[in-house]
């Protein structure tokens, strides 16, 4: 499960019927400096990921998202999803420093 910073939303005009009830967030994966809480621009150098979300992530949230087969493991019907938001992060303690989000 990787750290991600929500930097936007993606709205689909027409989508797969199994996507009903979910939203898509544009997420920038976080690197060590951003995880440790340094004051850096939210968009990191890594490619952005569109993450399926039914947990309720909003703009600016730090989330834990999962990619690969496990991203579609929680659906009843087979769903074409390969990035899934499974946690909103409230507090990070990293290398001795704690910061609340």
């Amino acid at each position: 499960m990787r750290f991600g910073k929500v930097i936007g939303k993606v709205t689909l005009s027409d989508s797969d019927p199994t996507y009903i009830g979910g939203r898509f967030l544009l997420v920038s994966p976080m690197d060590k400096a951003r995880i440790s809480g340094e004051d850096l621009p939210p968009v990191s150098g890594q490619p952005d990921v569109v993450v399926y979300d039914n947990v309720g992530g909003g703009l600016g949230d730090v989330i834990g998202f999962v990619e690969g087969g496990e991203a579609s493991a929680t659906f009843d019907k087979p769903t074409p999803v390969d990035a899934f938001n499974c946690a909103l992060i409230d507090e990070i303690t990293y290398q001795g420093r704690t910061h609340t989000l």
Binding site: V55, G64, C86, I89, D90, E91, Y94, G96
Partner: peptide
């Protein structure tokens, strides 16, 4: 292990587990 994370809103199968940051 570099630290840990607190997440109250998460998938139900993750509730109750310690979440550690691993490098």
């Amino acid at each position: 292990v570099e630290g840990n994370v607190v997440s109250t809103v998460c998938h139900q199968t993750m509730k109750g587990w310690r979440l550690l940051i691993c490098q």
